[in-house]
Every structure is written in C-alpha cells, then in structure tokens.
C-alpha cells in the first residue's frame, strides 16, 4: 500500500507543519520500529548508503544518543559533530561549517542549538532535510512525538484526554511542541505552575488551560507530565525557593490522588527527584518515564525512515 502522506524531503522544525493524520502516520510507523527494538537482533538494512549528521551545539545525552542509535539501527552512516572540539571553536561560522559538511555528502542533519530557528538556518545553507533536536525555548518536536506516542500506545487515542503538564512551562520547548501536537490529536491540555513560570498568553496561542493550583489542575487528569525544574534558573528571581516550589507543585503519592486513578505519569527527564517528582512516583507502575526513553529511539527511527526512505 502506498503512503498517502509524503515525508520525503521535508523538514521537522516543529509539529505545526504536520497534520493530525500525518502525526498518526508517524505513530504507526513508530509501532513497527518498536517491534524491531524488541528483537534480539536490532538492525535493519533500510538506510544503507545514506549519511546523517548530528550537530549538537548544546549539551545533551539522551536525545543525542537516542538519535544516533536510531541512525545506526537503520544502517545509515553517522557523523557526529561536536561543537566544543570542532572548527567552530576556532571561529568558523555555522554557514561555513554546514557547507563543509555538505561537501562530504550528508543526506540529513539533526541539530540542537540554543538559538531558536537554527534548524531553518541549517536547511538554508545545506538544502537538505533537517530535524530539530531542540532549539532554545522554541521547540523539541521529537520529544513531543515520543511523549504523544507513549500515551497513544497505552490509551489508544489522545482524543478528549485530560493531560496536565506541571512545572517550568515558560522555559520549556518540550511543552510548546507537546501543546501543538496534543491539541491536533484532540487532547485537552492544562498547564500548571507558579505564575512566574507560566506565561498568561498560552491559552490564546495553544488553546490550553492555565491553572496555578495543583489540585485543580490535576482533577480528573488521565495523564500527568512533570517537567524538569531548571535549577540554573534559580538566580533569575522567578521562585522564592526550590522548597517553596516543591511544597506546592511536587508530584507525590498525595498530590497525584487528585487525578484519575491509574493516571499515567510522565517526565521528559532528566529528573530532579525530590524537587518536581518524588521517587515513589517516578518509579511506580503508573510511570512511563523509562518507556518514554525506549519509545524515543523508535520514534526517531520512524522519522528517519519516513524522511529518507524514498526518492
């Protein structure tokens, strides 16, 4: 059967470029890749002869490893560009770097950079498909897709689910991409956190609800997602203290009782145990935290196949 959606030659900057049907097609391809990852022999010949370059200009462990594992499992060649040990540190511009890499025959770029819009820049210089692995506070579409897949796989749909995201909403690119994707699939999303960390304009742009009280936010939730408190933001005066935050917003045995029984617990990681989420919740039966990590590899394999597996 022919795919009615065409992903070949496209870029993944954020989920707003993709329709609900296209997102579902990505989730379905992810299910297939997940089966591959559960085999003893986890390797496919699908992308032999293709070359993928990962450009991580900002620290990352799980996203980079997840992408690189996905590239390897599909048998594409991988070049991993690290900003700190490259010619960039000798003053070479991003444009020259991309042109140099392009001359080596790269077929697809994966970039993480602290500046929003960097993936578009890489595409402009390379004219090759680019996947955004996180650009500043703007977007992190593959994380959103793996989050959405983790829910979809468990509950079969996102339609009419109540999903509550708790934490530092303001600085989170994960939230922005999730708000776009979850909304497209029909979920009702509530974001919750202290006023200093939840921008008031979100409902207008993303059609989500804003709550500052955890109990109200969690009421009847099917899915609860905690976010990492960015400890480095402590000095910006947005929180009286971390203890204060924990007192009001931590996901614990007590607070998750406000949600539906057996509500799914998610966290994109890395977790600050004891600050935004208690260990007993992070490690509970309801927790999808490790499933999210495993699903991340499958989602990225599906995307690489869809973007590169064709003319």
């Amino acid at each position: 059967m022919k795919n009615k959606h065409n992903f070949i030659g496209r870029n993944l900057y954020d989920l707003d470029d993709y329709s609900a049907d296209e997102i579902i097609a990505i989730l379905e391809a992810t299910s297939v890749m997940k089966e591959i990852n559960e085999r003893d022999y986890k390797k496919l010949p699908t992308l032999r002869g293709k070359t993928v370059c990962t450009l991580f200009m900002e620290n990352s462990t799980r996203t980079r490893m997840s992408f690189e594992l996905a590239v390897n499992r599909l048998s594409a060649d991988l070049v991993s560009f690290q900003a700190s040990i490259s010619a960039l540190s000798k003053g070479e511009s991003l444009q020259d770097t991309i042109c140099t890499l392009n001359a080596m025959g790269i077929d697809l770029y994966i970039i993480r950079h602290r500046f929003p819009g960097s993936p578009q820049l890489v595409h402009k210089y390379s004219e090759k498909p680019v996947m955004n692995a996180g650009d500043g506070r703007h977007a992190h579409p593959t994380q959103a897709l793996l989050d959405i897949f983790s829910i979809w796989e468990r509950l079969g749909t996102l339609k009419d689910l109540k999903i509550t995201i708790v934490g530092d909403i303001a600085h989170s690119r994960v939230v922005r991409s999730n708000l776009i994707g979850m909304k497209k699939l029909g979920a009702n999303v509530t974001v919750c956190g202290p006023k200093t960390l939840v921008p008031g304009f979100l409902p207008e742009i993303y059609g989500c609800k804003v709550e500052h009280d955890l109990e109200t936010a969690l009421k009847d939730a099917d899915v609860i997602m905690g976010l990492r408190m960015q400890l480095e933001r402590q000095n910006e005066g947005l929180l009286p203290s971390l203890d204060e935050y924990t007192k009001q917003y931590v996901l614990s045995k007590r607070t998750i009782q406000f949600a539906k029984k057996d509500a799914l617990i998610m966290h994109p990681g890395p977790m600050n145990r004891g600050i935004e989420i208690m260990p007993e919740i992070a490690d509970s039966q309801q927790s999808l935290v490790l499933a999210q990590v495993a699903n991340g590899v499958a989602v990225r394999m599906a995307l690489l196949f869809l973007f590169l597996g064709g003319k």
């Binding site: 065409n6 297939v32 591959i36 869809l306 003319k311």
Partner: peptide
Amino acid sequence: DITLYRDDLSTIAHQPVIKGS
C-alpha cells in the same frame, strides 16, 4: 513486512506504508 528490506526504496516514487512483522 519486507518494506524495510527493499532494495528499491531510494528509487520508488511513492513511499510504502510500513505495517510491521
């Protein structure tokens, strides 16, 4: 599902849907 093992993926005009094995 042999889609991921095809030798003509980079030449066919329409990408096939993968359904899994």
